[in-house]
């Protein structure tokens, strides 16, 4: 099982990690895009309002101007539609609120950062758990126009997507992991099977063959193993035959030795132990001599046999007439 776990623990965490990294990057890009778009919109809103405001302002007479800030703003705001952000207009001091369409005010530091040339500034602020884009610009008419957009949905969406993605990622990883373990288990199952067959072959079951029919590398290995097993079994049987031939030979030879030896030892013992007549002594000595010769002949035969054992006999077919002619020539009769 170890290899399977090794593979599993190498790939699955990597998989999960890369999935997470990818997801995070995509989400971040998307989020950033949304954020930028909202800010741009806020800025454009501010600009548009400013332009409309100034146009309207310049078209009005001096006297109507003061009261009209509110009226202009309201009018413009009504036309802007539901998607628009909130507008606030400050007086020339930057403090006095001349118009606002909502009492909720978002604290920003834009005003402090606006230097002489810059007439507009933007900031993204978080307040009471909500996010806002604020654009503050100074109109040529002297008032400050502040546009606020609620960005919270963008952030909320990001959180939501993050959650969805995480769940999805884990689910996918889980499924992948399960699948991978399943496949590995199947594959390893085959290797375990092969391992078992190999062991049983080694322990003497020379009939054992791996019954793995898959067409992959393991199947191929099993095929090769079976082939090897067959070859080994044949060789084993050949060797066994060889051994039993050797044993048969040895025992036959041993027997052939013992018979003459029995005579030699027996007669020699008789001669040395007993009082024998001249005739009996001669007879005994004769037997000893003959049986000794017999042993000698046996040893010669053994020598010849062992010389032949090493070499393979090569048979050639001859014509009978050639053989006879050759034999006659050798005998000098031709």
């Amino acid at each position: 099982m170890r290899l399977a776990w090794k593979i599993f623990f190498l790939t699955i965490p990597l998989f999960l990690l890369s999935l997470t990294a990818l997801g995070t990057w995509i989400l971040q890009e998307s989020f950033q895009g949304n954020l930028d778009r909202e800010r741009e919109r806020c800025f454009m809103e501010n600009q548009m309002f400013q332009v409309s405001y100034e146009l309207t302002w310049h078209s009005l007479s001096e006297e109507s101007r003061e009261e009209s800030v509110k009226a202009i703003a309201q009018g413009l705001h009504r036309n802007a539609g539901a998607e628009a952000g909130n507008i606030r207009i400050y007086g020339e001091d930057g403090e006095e609120i001349l118009y606002q369409d909502t009492p909720e005010r978002v604290a920003t530091q834009i005003q402090e950062h606006l230097t002489g040339d810059a007439n507009a500034g933007a900031q993204i602020v978080s307040q009471k758990g909500r996010y806002y884009a604020v654009v503050l610009s100074r109109s040529s008419t002297g008032v400050w126009i502040e546009t606020t957009r609620d960005l919270t949905p963008v952030f909320r969406e990001r959180e939501h997507l993050k959650t969805v993605y995480q769940t999805g990622a884990f689910l996918i990883t889980f499924v992948m992991g399960g699948l991978m373990l399943g496949i590995l288990y199947l594959v390893m199952g085959n290797t375990r099977k092969l391992s078992r067959i190999a062991r049983s072959f080694a322990s003497g079951q020379y009939q054992a063959r791996a019954n793995i029919r898959s067409r992959d590398e393991i199947g191929r290995l099993a095929e090769d193993f079976n082939w090897m097993a067959r070859v080994m079994k044949e060789q084993m049987e050949q060797l066994k035959e060889e051994v039993s031939r050797q044993e048969a030979f040895t025992s036959a030879f041993s027997h052939e030795l013992k018979t003459p030896l029995t005579s030699i030892i027996g007669y020699a013992d008789t001669i040395r132990s007993m009082d024998l007549s001249r005739e009996e002594t001669d007879l005994s000595a004769d037997y000893i001599y003959r049986q000794g010769k017999r042993l000698l002949s046996l040893s010669h035969k053994l020598l010849d046999w062992s010389a032949l054992e090493g070499k393979k006999e090569t048979f050639k077919s001859l014509l009978m007439t050639d053989l006879i002619r050759e034999a006659a020539r050798t005998r000098g009769r031709e």
Binding site: T262, G266, Y267, T270, M274, L283, S284
Partner: peptide
């Protein structure tokens, strides 16, 4: 069946 051996035994038994 081996003559030398049978003779050996016979000789000794007779003696």
């Amino acid at each position: 069946d081996e003559e030398p051996i049978s003779n050996l035994i016979r000789m000794n038994l007779v003696k």
